[in-house]
Write a protein that binds this DNA or RNA. Structure first.
Lengths: 196, 196
DNA sequence: TTTTTTAATGAACGAACATTCATTTATATT
DNA sequence: AATATAAATGAATGTTCGTTCATTAAAAAA
């Protein structure tokens, strides 16, 4: 018997993220990926059923990593504004420090694979977020609104700010730098919108 | 001499949007596209230099159409809240009524083609929006903030709401329907965040 | 040490890819 | 009606695609 080489699998997973972020899904071919990861094309099929399964598995892994970073030091019984702040800053920092992972996730989210990814993904995380939100509404720390409206107002602006930041890093002119001050300002405005 | 058939070109452009929305960029092959549009693959190359040029041209066309819809009945000298409302509702309705166009635009925005698309695109629209924002700040109808923060807080939530809506239309369970009331509620919250 | 098991591979598969080209078709101009 | 011009095409180009397979290498179990 011979054991699987976890380093090989990890190399493949990392290159999936890197190549997808750089060249998009059509740029990600199994041959290129194998060459980048330093393995044979056939090796990829030891670890993944096929290309789609590979993308979905990597998506799940990166999502979980991002969720984990999001709830670092978060406690569902925190006051609403404080709990939101912790998650907000955690997630923003994760994306700022992992631009390729963010690019990969966002490309996934906007591709037709998204539906299949959603089906198997993140139900636990979403449930606990819904609980946090409903609890905050009950305590009158958060205005009454559907979960989707809450999420859109709370987090979509942060995603957009990080995207501006990432774009600015590539094009030289009129660069937008996302400082801690700007993050704080945006967060305060979001809280202003959401609290009674 | 023989004239170009505008209907052929338009059929190609429409199918680019449709196929990209349905199957993503890797699903969009020139052969499939030709078959869907009812032309020969070679015909596409009469109207477009190559695949990338085609995608960029369609992106420009759809963007312009969306910008035009956004500023319908908008006047830059409107009071800030009213001007924002007009643009906000216009754009939301455009996306709700043109889900494939939105999917196409968002896929473009998150692909590596985005940089090339930005270079040639929409500078005039952005300039007039910046003017509107700075004018509002001068009049103290809008709090002082960088343009990117304004845009993120004002429009990113609406994009996210429309995406929830579009997802909900495909998966049967726990469907989220974006009603006019919910749109209005979100818009009021955004205005609450942005006004002094 | 030998056997057994599975990881790992390079070469090979047919299919599908973007693009080109020789030819035909349509139509504006003469 | 004849000519000229460019649109339109199906077939063919060579390449690259995702995936498989016969074979070899490694290491755990005997």
């Amino acid at each position: 018997m011979r054991n699987r080489d976890d380093q090989k699998e990890q190399a493949i997973r990392e290159k999936v993220i890197e190549l997808t972020a750089q060249e998009g899904f059509d740029g990600l071919s199994m041959h290129k990926l194998a060459r980048a990861a330093g393995v044979s094309p056939a090796t990829i099929y030891i670890y993944f059923k096929d290309r789609e399964d590979m993308l979905l598995q990597v998506f799940t892994e990166v999502s979980d990593q991002m969720y984990k970073a999001t709830i670092e030091s978060f406690d569902p019984d925190m006051p609403f504004a404080e709990g939101l702040r912790v998650q907000w800053i955690n997630r923003a920092h994760y994306f700022i420090n992992h631009p390729m992972e963010m690019q990969f996730l966002e490309q996934m989210r906007h591709s037709p694979l998204n539906e299949k990814a959603m089906a198997q993904n993140a139900s636990m995380f979403k449930e606990s977020m819904q609980k946090f939100v409903h609890q905050a509404i009950d305590r009158k720390e958060l205005i009454q609104l559907p979960f989707e409206v809450y999420w859109s107002i709370a987090f979509a602006p942060m995603y957009q700010l990080v995207k501006y930041h990432a774009q600015g890093n590539s094009s030289a002119s009129e660069r937008f730098e996302l400082t801690e001050n700007i993050l704080e300002q945006a967060l305060r405005l979001v809280i202003k919108a959401l609290t009674p």
